[in-house]
């Protein structure tokens, strides 16, 4: 691997996003190196979800741009190398579908318009369901899942995408300790396979254990870099401002 500019999986340049009049993200410059497991940390309303959505192209920024490596290819091919795990609360789980149906949606991007999933896609879906420990739930209706199981179904769906860069919005929300460990193992496995994973994370105590790269944001990027270099009290204080005192015991 060459260590030039190409070793960044995602480069964000001067990104500003606003809903109504108020900016939610202000002049974000961010470089995410390839093959890193990166946490995005910040207080509520800091723009973590917005940052992820903007990088995925789900929002139109006021200014700025997001670059991926080798994005000169056509839109479809390049979107296929990006995986997305949304917050599980973002959809209606009473939708008439089985776990397998939802996981199969991960391959829709590769298939493109009109084409239907084939046997190979089914097998892939089964394999990923097994990975997240949900294989016995494959034919279960999705309304019967618990919060943690919903989260794992979304994770399996993203794995089916077989992307190079993954964006995950709070994959540990409402998940028990055991499931959290299983998910972390999965993330580390992704990293070992050379994938880049960006995770919105809330639990400051586990950042150092789970991740090797961290971005602290609150409207703007406070710091971004290796966990052992930038994840210290001073930066956390800057990120959380008023609540900084409460966090002293954590780090």
């Amino acid at each position: 691997m060459n260590n030039n500019a190409t070793s960044y999986a995602v480069e964000v340049e001067d990104l500003t996003v606003a809903y109504d009049m108020k900016p939610v993200l202000w002049d974000i410059d961010l470089k995410i190196p390839k093959g890193k497991l990166m946490a995005v940390v910040g207080p509520n309303g800091a723009g973590k979800t917005t940052l992820i959505k903007a990088m995925l192209g789900l929002l139109t920024p006021v200014s700025g741009a997001v670059h991926f490596t080798n994005e000169s290819e056509d839109l479809r091919a390049f979107k296929n190398r990006i995986g997305y795990v949304p917050q599980s609360g973002s959809v209606d789980w009473d939708f008439p579908a089985t776990v397998q149906d939802v996981v199969l949606m991960g391959c829709y991007g590769k298939l493109g318009w009109v084409k239907r999933p084939r046997k190979a896609d089914m097998a892939l879906a089964q394999q990923m369901l097994k990975k997240v420990g949900m294989l016995e739930y494959a034919t279960r209706q999705i309304s019967q899942l618990s919060g943690g199981q919903q989260q794992r179904v979304f994770l399996a769906r993203a794995l089916v995408q077989e992307a190079d860069v993954y964006f995950m919005d709070e994959p540990f929300k409402g998940v028990d300790a055991q499931t959290e460990k299983a998910i972390v193992l999965l993330l580390k496995e992704l990293k070992e396979n050379g994938k880049t994973v960006v995770v919105v994370h809330h639990d400051l105590q586990t950042v150092a254990d789970y991740f090797d790269w961290v971005t602290l944001i609150n409207l703007c990027v406070v710091a971004s870099g290796p966990v052992n270099e930038v994840f210290h009290e001073e930066n956390l204080k800057k990120t959380y401002r008023s609540t900084g005192g409460l966090l002293r015991s954590v780090v």
């Binding site: 192209g57 789900l58 209606d92 579908a97 149906d101 949606m105 991007g109 318009w113 084409k115 995408q161």
Partner: peptide, 22 residues
């Protein structure tokens, strides 16, 4: 019938549909 897969995906999770390039 033609766009069954797309309509299903879009109705369930439109953000994810967009992230896939639809």
């Amino acid at each position: 019938l033609l766009f069954w897969k797309e309509f299903k995906l879009f109705t369930f999770d439109s953000d994810f549909a967009q992230s896939l390039g639809f």
